[in-house]
């Protein structure tokens, strides 16, 4: 794959700080993060964002959805001539061999379209499509918390749980591009049914919605929580973000669930450290907004479950790019493919 060769050549520069602007005019890239919303940005070669655009994804009609993507790219480009490539981080499985999108229950089904070819035709750019977690991992690696490392495990904790893996300075996608489905790590035999068809997946416990689910269950299992401030909100709409805010405000219910979530995640992360001996684990995604309240329990559990030599040379750190990791990463994937 071109992208991989590009990475190698970049890696030979030794770090991610190389200035990519060409003499005279600055090169710009478009990055898209596609999920329930389409978030896009015009990104400079150094990873900084010039401008952003965002629309809610059409979920009922594939044609309209694809046109939405084209429109966002065109809107971002506007009248700038320097844009040469676009990268897309896709919330779902992307067959890298054929640049084809697999069916995804969360989004409209575009598996029957040749999305890649259509986008390139409509925009006139080189387009690269990758899994959204891979894109975010790439962003954190090239210009975020994992800058300068060769062996990186990036986890994004949000509506789902995804991950990206960089080993020996290369983004790893597996034989077809389906690698990194950390959310479907099986953590228990008698666990809950998961959207993937399996049971006991990590995602059924630690994704944002499942954190909220567990908060609600906790409330039911112990009526004393019905006195908590968070419980009053629970009569309305509850989101993982609200749970995190409550934890920061020292709400017992939110704290207890986050702590347990950290323990579960820490155990799973430890397995990865033991397996791959990575130098750094970067944790991103909306769930990490709770900061140390979730990070500390993750570290504690990971420490207990990791072989100590592997632990000594590994750091567990929060991501730096926040919500923008995906769009920046997608743009940088496009940048590096162009070289």
């Amino acid at each position: 794959m071109g992208a991989q060769q590009a990475e190698e050549s970049r890696q030979s520069h030794g770090d991610g700080e190389v200035n990519h602007s060409m003499a005279g005019s600055e090169q710009l890239y478009i990055g898209l993060d596609v999920g329930r919303t389409i978030r896009g940005a015009l990104v400079r070669a150094d990873g900084s964002i010039l401008r952003q655009h965002r629309v809610v994804s059409e979920v009922s009609n594939a044609r309209i959805f694809i046109d939405q993507l084209i429109d966002v790219i065109k809107a971002l480009r506007a009248d700038t001539e320097e844009v040469t490539a676009a990268g897309i981080g896709w919330a779902g499985l992307v067959n890298q061999r054929e640049q084809r999108i697999e069916v995804n229950p969360n989004l409209v089904d575009v598996s029957s379209y040749d999305l890649h070819a259509e986008l390139e035709r409509a925009t006139g750019f080189t387009v690269v499509i990758d899994n959204d977690a891979n894109a975010a991992a790439y962003g954190e690696w090239r210009s975020g918390a994992a800058r300068g490392f060769n062996d990186v495990f990036y986890v994004t904790l949000g509506t789902g749980i995804g991950s990206g893996l960089i080993l020996g300075g290369q983004l790893q996608r597996g034989s077809r591009g389906f690698a990194g489905e950390f959310g479907h790590f099986k953590i228990s035999d008698d666990g809950l049914e998961c959207g993937c068809g399996g049971t006991g997946c990590l995602e059924t416990m630690a994704s944002g919605p499942n954190i909220v689910r567990r908060v609600r269950e906790q409330l039911f299992s112990d009526p004393s929580f019905s006195l908590s401030k968070l419980a009053r909100d629970m009569e309305g709409i509850l989101t993982a973000e609200r749970v995190e805010r409550a934890a920061i405000e020292k709400d017992d219910l939110a704290l207890s669930v986050l702590k347990e979530t950290g323990r579960i995640l820490g155990n799973a992360v430890a397995s990865v450290i033991n397996l791959l001996n990575v130098e750094v684990v970067v944790l991103g995604g909306g769930v990490m907004a709770a900061g140390d309240l979730i990070l500390e329990p993750i570290r504690e559990a990971a420490q207990r479950a990791t072989l100590s030599p592997a632990l000594e040379c590994c750091r567990i750190v929060p991501a730096e790019l926040g919500q923008d990791a995906g769009i920046i990463g997608a743009a940088l994937l496009a940048r590096d493919m162009r070289i």
């Binding site: 809950l192 049914e193 059924t204 994704s207 919605p209 909220v212 689910r213 609600r216 709409i237 989101t239």
Partner: peptide, 19 residues
């Protein structure tokens, strides 16, 4: 659903129904 917990619970329930 706007509520993430309800979303997760509905997804689980549907997985069970399907099974």
């Amino acid at each position: 659903d706007d509520d993430e917990g309800v979303r997760a619970k509905a997804r689980w329930a549907l997985s069970k129904l399907k099974k």
